[in-house]
Simulated assay, not measured.
Amino acid sequence: MNSKSIAIIRDLIYVITGILFCGFALKGFLVPNQFFDGGITGISLLIHEIYHVNIAYVIVLANLPLIVMGAFQVSKKFALKTLACVILLGICLLYVPYPIITSDKLLVSIFGGVFMGIGVGLSMRGGCALDGIEVLALYTLKRSSFTISEIILGINIIIFLIAAVHLGLPTALYSILTYYTASRAITFVIEGLEEYTAVNIISAQSEHIKEKLVKEMGKGITVYKGERGFLKESFDVHHPVDIVFTVVTRFEVRRLKNKVHEVDPQAFVYTSTIKEAAGGILKKRAREH
């Protein structure tokens, strides 16, 4: 079996597992308790509660315009995969007999969001989307000065305000917690435990630090040429310095800092989160889209 076939099977497993998790979140937690989420799923749940239309049909129909839009904004392949994914979710909601887990509002808002986030995150790793809100945001982005995050936030604020009017403020507030939990779960599933961190190190002992990073931690490094000094009391005094850059997982940050401070306790170390990284000597594979 070649690598392409393995990738297709892996993506299929991601998508099917994601659909099952989303179905579990909807039928086991959110729908029986009149809770909802953000995005197109939230709109579908609102329509279901207000007009009592079967949630399976509503989710499919609500996503169709955005799937068509996705064919132009992203790619036709993405749109077809997303269409198949959404239809499978509708079938899952119609025929899989999920049990109702709990009616406790706090448990519903937290674990409904967790399972929904896991499902959406897994489907995204499989190369499709169970919620078309990002496609709508991309479409709006080209016609406004707002960022994608601002557009999504604005859409969700409208959803929660409508829900507060029709379903009551407590339900809307609990559902905001569901949305937050789901968004964090999506991030966790997509980024994983090995979320990467960029590290920059400025030190007069950069040669020894390079040696520790490469030989003891097995890290690849990049070196920028810079200057240090420029203090208020001695602004004209400055020296050339190598600025060492490397990428580590967040679990390695503490170990790296300890090794740097063994060499130079006064070293300036600053970090920033990387959303995606691939290539070089990174061991983690690049995700397929």
Rank of each mutant, 00 (worst) to 15 (best):
V58S: 06
F245E: 07
F72W: 12
F146D: 03
K284E: 14
P240Q: 15
H289M: 09
G126P: 07
G218Y: 02
P99V: 06
G127K: 04
K215Y: 08
P97W: 09
T171D: 09
L88V: 12
E227K: 15
L256K: 06
C128E: 04
L93K: 01
S183N: 15
I281K: 05
D236L: 09
K284Q: 14
N54T: 08
Y95P: 00
L256W: 07
G154P: 00
S3T: 11
L20Q: 05
G90L: 03
L20Y: 04
L61K: 01
S145N: 13
V223S: 04
I13A: 14
F24C: 11
E227R: 13
L173V: 14
G113K: 02
E150C: 00
A84V: 14
P97K: 13
N258H: 14
A198P: 00
I152T: 10
R228P: 00
G117C: 04
K257V: 03
H239G: 00
K81R: 15
E211L: 05
Y174P: 05
G90T: 02
V223C: 07
I59G: 07
A7R: 13
A172N: 04
V189P: 04
F230G: 04
V53R: 12
G119H: 05
L231Y: 15
F21P: 01
L169D: 08
G226S: 13
I201A: 13
S203C: 07
D11E: 13
E288L: 12
H52Y: 06
S175N: 12
R143L: 04
L106G: 12
T171P: 02
G132W: 03
I202C: 12
A204M: 07
G121M: 01
V237F: 09
E276W: 01
T147I: 02
F78G: 02
K212M: 13
N156D: 12
H261D: 08
Y51G: 00
I55W: 01
E233S: 10
H166P: 00
I87T: 05
F188W: 12
V86S: 08
G23A: 07
N2E: 12
I274F: 09
K225W: 01
L169N: 08
Y51W: 15
I157Q: 06
L193R: 15
K275S: 14
H166Q: 10
M217N: 07
G90E: 05
R228I: 06
I151C: 02
K4M: 07
E262L: 12
Y174C: 08
K212H: 11
D131C: 03
I13Y: 09
K283Q: 13
G42Y: 03
S175R: 11
V223N: 05
A172D: 04
V108Y: 08
H52Q: 15
Y270T: 11
Y57T: 03
G126Q: 11
S206V: 01
T178A: 10
K81C: 02
R228S: 13
A204D: 13
D131F: 01
M69K: 06
I151E: 07
I59S: 11
F188G: 05
T271G: 09
I151Q: 06
G23I: 03
V96L: 12
K232Q: 14
L136A: 14
G112Q: 06
G127L: 04
H289F: 10
